[in-house]
Design a binder for these strands. Structure first.
Length: 287
DNA sequence: TCACAGGCTTCTG
DNA sequence: CAGAAGCCTGTG
């Protein structure tokens, strides 16, 4: 296990932020809880109490993977300080969801996830992603956390479904995607599974990783089923181009209501996507 | 950086 | 019935 302090991070908020659909509550607790995350062929469980975090992995695995995944080297404090103090909507959004970050997730997984997201809602997206993993992901074991009778934290073995490789999805054919609640999106996913598998697919994904935002966005929208909005989500969540600013139906409503002259993208040039996440989370979860 | 309409899955309120 | 982290295709 590895214990560390992290500010500006809230796992419960991240799980509801609409950027990752594979984080869930493993055990409820008085303060926060134990959350599980599966990413990049690895599994971890994390207990949060305020800014104190206990990871089920050891320090080397944290430093070698989860530190990057949780984007710990971005200064979110500086981002928050840079926001216009007069901007009441953004200030309220940051006060409400200040623990939201831009995770560094797997590119192929983000392509599939945000193809599923189109004309869809978060619970349904989650169901489809889970079903996809259950069908194609070959079960693996990871290390989780559990409280013993005395309330002490212990590690415990857990099984989980990793996100399937593109090759596995491609091999299943279009019919392999039936019954997952994908609807008309199934053909988009299967086409991209073909595109991303094999040596050519690996090269294309590597080229995408090497490209700047504008180029990557163009490469993505050239593909079947990927429009402007999905491409921006893949750029933001799969390539960490935080200048990408996905405009979906909710963000459109926010802009129409609170930024009639348009969102001040120039003021936040280079990282507007982070602010988009604060606004998106606030709009969807504030009641 | 042309605008717009219609269709596409499926579930919730 | 409308709406949900939309996109594709065809038309004028």
């Amino acid at each position: 296990m590895y214990k560390t302090e992290i500010k500006n991070m809230d796992l419960g908020q991240l799980a509801k932020s609409g950027q990752c659909f594979r984080m869930r509550l493993a055990a409820e607790m008085e303060h926060g809880g134990i959350w599980s995350a599966a990413a990049g062929g690895r599994y971890v469980e994390v207990m949060q109490d305020g800014s104190h975090f206990l990871f089920s992995c050891e320090e080397d695995e944290f430093e070698g993977g989860w530190r990057t995944y949780f984007d710990m080297d971005t200064d979110y404090e500086a981002v928050k300080r840079s926001v216009d103090p007069e901007d009441e909507y953004l200030q309220a959004a940051m006060a409400f969801g200040g623990g939201v970050r831009i995770l560094r997730q797997d590119l192929w997984e983000m392509i599939v996830t945000f193809l599923i997201s189109q004309n869809n809602n978060i619970p349904r997206i989650r169901n489809s992603v889970d079903a996809l993993c259950a069908r194609f992901g070959e079960k693996k074991t990871g290390i989780g956390l559990v409280l013993d009778l005395e309330g002490c934290v212990k590690t415990v073995e857990k099984t989980y479904d990793p996100f399937p490789e593109a090759g596995a999805v491609a091999a299943g054919g279009l019919e392999g995607l039936a019954g997952l609640g994908l609807g008309y999106r199934d053909k988009y996913i299967w086409t991209m599974a073909e595109k991303c598998s094999g040596p050519d697919g690996t090269k294309w994904l590597d080229d995408l990783r090497a490209a700047d935002y504008h180029t990557a966005h163009g490469m993505l929208t050239a593909e079947f089923g990927i429009g402007r909005k999905v491409a921006d989500c893949v750029c933001l969540f799969g390539l960490h181009h935080v200048e990408a600013f996905p405009v979906d139906t909710h963000v459109k409503q926010i802009v129409n209501t609170y930024y009639p002259g348009g969102f001040p993208l120039e003021r936040y040039r280079g990282y507007a996507g982070i602010l988009q996440q604060y606004m998106f989370y606030y709009k969807l979860n504030d009641k």
